[in-house]
Every structure is written in C-alpha cells, then in structure tokens.
Measured scan of single mutants.
Amino acid sequence: MKKYKITVYDEKTGEKHTIEIEMSEEELEELAKKLAEKHNVKVRIEKV
C-alpha cells in the first residue's frame, strides 16, 4: 500500500477538499471514479 493525496474539487460551489490516504492503487482508482460519478466533482491524485 502506498500513501496518496486526494484533492476533490466541486466546480459549482468552488469547494476544494484534500485528504491523505493509504491504500492500493486499484482501490484508489475505484474510489476516485465513484467520487467523480456520484458527486460530479473533479478528483486529482498525487503520490506522497
């Protein structure tokens, strides 16, 4: 498992949230996809 920083940005409201999380790359990609689809936000992932 690796550490990642996830930034979620909502273009409508301008809200931006960043968290650090430790998980596998596959789980992370699935999480990012679900966030983007369900909440209509942009998701950026960076390795820490």
Results as ranks from 00 to 15, higher is better:
residue 29 E to S: 10
residue 33 K to Y: 03
residue 1 M to R: 15
residue 46 E to I: 09
residue 37 E to H: 06
residue 48 V to F: 00
residue 47 K to Y: 06
residue 43 V to R: 00
residue 3 K to L: 07
residue 16 K to C: 12
residue 45 I to F: 04
residue 15 E to V: 08
residue 30 E to S: 10
residue 14 G to F: 03
residue 18 T to K: 03
residue 20 E to C: 12
residue 12 K to W: 10
residue 38 K to G: 12
residue 7 T to K: 02
residue 37 E to N: 10
residue 33 K to H: 12
residue 28 L to S: 05
residue 32 A to N: 06
residue 27 E to K: 07
residue 43 V to Q: 01
residue 23 M to I: 14
residue 15 E to F: 09
residue 38 K to H: 12
residue 12 K to I: 15
residue 7 T to W: 05
residue 23 M to R: 01
residue 47 K to R: 13
residue 39 H to R: 11
residue 4 Y to M: 04
residue 6 I to M: 03
residue 31 L to T: 05
residue 40 N to T: 07
residue 3 K to M: 07
residue 33 K to W: 02
residue 25 E to R: 08
residue 46 E to Y: 00
residue 18 T to V: 14
residue 15 E to H: 10
residue 18 T to L: 05
residue 1 M to N: 11
residue 39 H to L: 10
residue 19 I to G: 01
residue 6 I to D: 00
residue 38 K to Q: 13
residue 45 I to T: 02
residue 3 K to R: 12
residue 38 K to N: 15
residue 22 E to T: 10
residue 46 E to W: 00
residue 44 R to D: 10
residue 7 T to H: 09
residue 19 I to Q: 04
residue 44 R to Y: 07
residue 36 A to C: 12
residue 17 H to P: 00
residue 8 V to F: 14
residue 25 E to Q: 12
residue 11 E to D: 08
residue 31 L to K: 02
residue 39 H to M: 07
residue 42 K to Y: 00
residue 3 K to I: 06
residue 10 D to P: 00
residue 43 V to C: 04
residue 21 I to Y: 05
residue 12 K to N: 14
residue 48 V to D: 05
residue 9 Y to V: 09
residue 31 L to I: 05
residue 45 I to L: 04
residue 47 K to F: 08
residue 33 K to L: 10
residue 5 K to E: 06
residue 5 K to W: 13
residue 35 L to G: 01
residue 15 E to S: 08
residue 1 M to P: 08
residue 29 E to L: 12
residue 46 E to C: 08
residue 11 E to M: 08
residue 15 E to M: 12
residue 12 K to P: 02
residue 33 K to A: 10
residue 43 V to I: 13
residue 9 Y to S: 04
residue 7 T to F: 07
residue 32 A to F: 14
residue 12 K to Y: 11
residue 22 E to N: 07
residue 47 K to C: 12
residue 13 T to N: 04
residue 44 R to F: 11
residue 28 L to M: 14
residue 14 G to S: 03
residue 4 Y to G: 03
residue 26 E to C: 12
residue 36 A to E: 08
residue 17 H to T: 10
residue 1 M to F: 06
residue 21 I to M: 10
residue 3 K to S: 03
residue 26 E to M: 11
residue 36 A to Y: 09
residue 23 M to E: 01
residue 30 E to G: 08
residue 28 L to P: 01
residue 41 V to L: 14
residue 20 E to A: 04
residue 6 I to Q: 00
residue 6 I to W: 00
residue 11 E to F: 07
residue 8 V to W: 14
residue 8 V to T: 07
residue 27 E to G: 12
residue 27 E to Q: 14
residue 9 Y to E: 06
residue 9 Y to G: 00
residue 3 K to D: 02
residue 18 T to W: 05
residue 6 I to F: 02
residue 39 H to D: 11
residue 45 I to R: 03
residue 18 T to M: 07
residue 24 S to M: 13
residue 2 K to T: 13
residue 29 E to N: 12
residue 8 V to I: 14
residue 23 M to Q: 02
residue 38 K to A: 09
residue 13 T to C: 04
residue 44 R to W: 07
residue 46 E to D: 08
residue 24 S to P: 08
residue 33 K to D: 05
residue 47 K to T: 15
residue 9 Y to H: 04
residue 29 E to G: 10
residue 16 K to A: 14
residue 38 K to I: 11
residue 23 M to G: 08
residue 30 E to Q: 13
residue 40 N to H: 14
residue 45 I to W: 05
residue 42 K to I: 14
residue 32 A to H: 07
residue 42 K to T: 14
residue 34 K to A: 11
residue 47 K to S: 14
residue 38 K to M: 15
residue 7 T to C: 07
residue 14 G to T: 02
residue 23 M to H: 01
residue 24 S to I: 10
residue 39 H to Q: 09
residue 42 K to H: 10
residue 43 V to F: 01
residue 4 Y to N: 01
residue 38 K to L: 15
residue 2 K to L: 13
residue 2 K to P: 15
residue 13 T to K: 03
residue 36 A to P: 02
residue 34 K to E: 07
residue 44 R to A: 07
residue 32 A to M: 13
residue 4 Y to C: 04
residue 1 M to Q: 11
residue 36 A to L: 13
residue 28 L to R: 02
residue 23 M to D: 01
residue 1 M to I: 11
residue 48 V to N: 04
residue 14 G to R: 05
residue 20 E to H: 10
residue 33 K to F: 04
residue 24 S to E: 10
residue 22 E to C: 14
residue 34 K to M: 11
residue 8 V to P: 00
residue 10 D to W: 07
residue 6 I to A: 00
residue 17 H to F: 15
residue 45 I to G: 01
residue 22 E to M: 10
residue 39 H to Y: 04
residue 43 V to M: 01
residue 47 K to N: 13
residue 7 T to D: 04
residue 30 E to D: 11
residue 17 H to Y: 15
residue 16 K to M: 14
residue 34 K to D: 07
residue 34 K to H: 15
residue 4 Y to E: 00
residue 2 K to V: 14
residue 38 K to F: 07
residue 35 L to W: 08
residue 10 D to H: 05
residue 5 K to R: 15
residue 28 L to I: 11
residue 18 T to R: 02
residue 5 K to H: 08
residue 9 Y to K: 02
residue 34 K to V: 12
residue 21 I to D: 01
residue 41 V to G: 15
residue 34 K to W: 07
residue 5 K to P: 02
residue 38 K to C: 05
residue 48 V to Y: 00
residue 27 E to F: 07
residue 12 K to R: 10
residue 31 L to A: 03
residue 25 E to L: 09
residue 13 T to Q: 01
residue 8 V to N: 00
residue 10 D to I: 04
residue 12 K to H: 12
residue 35 L to P: 00
residue 13 T to W: 03
residue 3 K to Y: 06
residue 30 E to F: 11
residue 47 K to A: 15
